[in-house]
Structure formats: structure tokens, C-alpha cells
């Protein structure tokens, strides 16, 4: 896929009237960043890009107070990586988006860059220029230039991703690859499980004590779309609003349970976190349980019911007192 192909495709969709608006990525204001763009004319399509900096999950723009986007008469097109398409599928199965009204445009993803990893590669020095192709990344700063393989700096969520290309689409720019095997997807979770209980609690406390309760993780998440989030309820007020550790932990645990069987592990939350908290570990633990216990992988098919809204009568209940 070339950027030219991408732009031409979007242009023709707009000029032929197949869509009224396309949500995509444009160049960001800092090296190594992109920013969501809303393209409603063919001219604007020239600002579209797709590369390893396109880390936002654009499906979020169909949720929360933009829910109307996919409900009114507008026909919306959206560019999706593999994970983003799964978010769309989830939202469609949950009747939040009308499949007929959205044009899903798949783009081939090789993983998105985690800028914190890139900055780590250059010992925290400021990066002034960033270029990448599907295999490697080159960064320049004051008095340095460095090239390294893309795989070394992609987000943790991309490292274990086996569905890099859209699972559901109307058109795909380039060639969509078949999903791989997710046999070893949860090695990190299994490592953590091996620690003893106290050690796990101490590590969690350490990690989550950095949380500033800005809710960026929740707000960039296409699966988090309650009208009023439980942390925003004040009658009754379920949890305290200060960054006190138990309140913070409860927020994150409950958020994880609310997206249990609904999280596509896109990693948008982790990349959005201003405090660099490894949020995805909890999500992945839940996803592993959901996969192993209920055989469900979120957002992989329009006919699948979300795991937590479903049940079988004779299910494993080893956690119930005998």
C-alpha cells in the first residue's frame, strides 16, 4: 500500500458519494506522531497518512457523545488496522453502530510505534525527526542519527498481535493477511501469574500509584462507552476521586471487568497513558481467561455474541465452592 493509493481510494469514495466523511490519520505536530483527521472533501484527503505512527484506534469516534455519527443519515468511512476493525465489530454486535452505514477501509498494519521505546533507544534525548517504513525506523536529533528495526519499538500490544489486518472490511488497501496463531499471546501474563500473591500486589501498587486519574485510558477506548461511567456517578458515589491507591486500583479493576470479553487488546489505553502505566497487563489477563474459559476472542466475527452476555449451562465452575 502506498499513501497515494490510500488518498486516491478515499477521494473516489467521497466524489462518488459512497461516503460523506472519512475518519483517518494525518501528520501530527511532533516527530513520530499522527493525529485523527476528519475528511469530508476530496481535497482534504491529501492530508491522510498511514504508517507506524497511526496509533489511535479511530473506532472511538463512533462512541460516547459521537454515537450520533453512525446513527444519523451520514455515511461514514473509517480507516482501520486489525485491532480497530475488531473494535468496530464489537460495537456493531452490541448494536452501537449500524453496519450498513459504515464503510470500513482496511489498511495493512505492521505494528504501531511506542514513542517511549524510541526515546529509550536514544537515552531520553529529544527526537527532532522521525521517519519509518514497514521494516525500520530512523530518528534524528541534535548530534545523533539512529536506525533500528521497527519490531524493536512497536507497542507491546503489537508484539503479540496476530490479527494485524482488518477482520471485517468493505475494501482493503493492499492485501489483507490471514490471522496467525495466538498460542503464545499471553506469555507475559503467565510470567506475572508465577509471582506470589504479595509480590503481585506490591508490583501492582507500584505501577498504579503513578495514576493521575485523568481517564485518558477510558476515553480513548472504543469499548468504554457507558452514558455515565461509574467513576462519574455521584449518587451514590462509588469510589473516591483522589489518586489514593485503593480508589485507583478499584477504578482500573472495574474498568477491566467492564471491558471483559469486549477488549480487543489494541493497546490504545496504554499508549494514551500520560504516566506510562502498563495498563494492558490486566486487560490481557482478562482476555486470556475469556479465551480459555469461554473460547471467545473479541471482535472477530459479526455473528459472535460478546462473551459476558452469553453462557453455556455446563460450564467450568472450578472457582465455586464445592
Amino acid at each position: 500500500m502506498t499513501v497515494k493509493e490510500l488518498r486516491e481510494t478515499v477521494k473516489s469514495l467521497l466524489t462518488e458519494g459512497k461516503v460523506d466523511l472519512v475518519i483517518g490519520w494525518g501528520k501530527g505536530t511532533m516527530p513520530g506522531t499522527s493525529t485523527p483527521v476528519f475528511i469530508d472533501t476530496a481535497e482534504k484527503a491529501d492530508s491522510l497518512i498511514f504508517d507506524s505512527t497511526c496509533r489511535n484506534n479511530l473506532s472511538v469516534y463512533f462512541t460516547k457523545d459521537r454515537r450520533a455519527l453512525a446513527k444519523d443519515d451520514k455515511k461514514i468511512g473509517v480507516l482501520v488496522k486489525g485491532c480497530d476493525s475488531r473494535s468496530l465489530v464489537l460495537n456493531i454486535t452490541e448494536k452501537q453502530i449500524d453496519r450498513e452505514k459504515v464503510t470500513i477501509i482496511g489498511v495493512p498494519c505492521n505494528g504501531v510505534v511506542d514513542m517511549k521505546k524510541v526515546v529509550g533507544k536514544v537515552d531520553g534525548k529529544e527526537i527532532l525527526e522521525f521517519t519509518d517504513d514497514s521494516k525500520k525506523v530512523t530518528v534524528k536529533g541534535r548530534e545523533f542519527e539512529l536506525t533500528f528495526p521497527l519490531d524493536e519499538v512497536i507497542s507491546d500490544s503489537c508484539l503479540t498481535c496476530v490479527r494485524r489486518d482488518a477482520v471485517e472490511y468493505d475494501l482493503f488497501i493492499g492485501e489483507a493477511r490471514e490471522p496467525g496463531s495466538d498460542e503464545n499471546a499471553y506469555a507475559e501474563v503467565e510470567e506475572f501469574e508465577k509471582l506470589d500473591s504479595e509480590e503481585r500486589w506490591e508490583r501492582m501498587k507500584q505501577e498504579y500509584s503513578a495514576c493521575i486519574r485523568c481517564y485518558a485510558c477510558r476515553n480513548v477506548c472504543p469499548s468504554c462507552y457507558c452514558n455515565v461511567c461509574f467513576v462519574d456517578q455521584n449518587d451514590p458515589q462509588w469510589i473516591g476521586k483522589s489518586p489514593e491507591i485503593t480508589d485507583t486500583m478499584i477504578f482500573h479493576i472495574i474498568r477491566n471487568l467492564h471491558v471483559a470479553g469486549r477488549c480487543v487488546e489494541c493497546g490504545a489505553c496504554e499508549r494514551a497513558c500520560p504516566m506510562d502505566i502498563k495498563l494492558l497487563l490486566l486487560n490481557r489477563k482478562v482476555a486470556k481467561e475469556v479465551r480459555d474459559r469461554f473460547g471467545s476472542i473479541t471482535g472477530t466475527g459479526l455473528e459472535n455474541k460478546p462473551a459476558m452476555a452469553d453462557f453455556k449451562e455446563d460450564e467450568n465452575q472450578d472457582f465455586i465452592m464445592g
Binding site: 501474563v189 506475572f192 501469574e193 500473591s197 504479595e198 509480590e199 503481585r200 500486589w201 506490591e202 508490583r203 501492582m204 486500583m249 479493576i253 477491566n256 471487568l257 471483559a260 470479553g261 490486566l282 489477563k285 482478562v286 481467561e289 475469556v290 474459559r293 469461554f294 462473551a307 459476558m308 452469553d310 453462557f311 460450564e315 467450568n316 465452575q317 472457582f319 465455586i320
Partner: peptide
């Protein structure tokens, strides 16, 4: 039951 099936391992995971 599904809810508890996820909740219990998750609580144990965070160190409860």
C-alpha cells in the same frame, strides 16, 4: 457465573 469466573482470577492476579 461468567462474571465471577473472570473476577476471581483477576482479583488473584492483582494480589488479593
Amino acid at each position: 457465573r461468567r462474571r465471577f469466573a473472570v473476577l476471581k482470577p483477576l482479583l488473584e492476579f492483582v494480589g488479593i
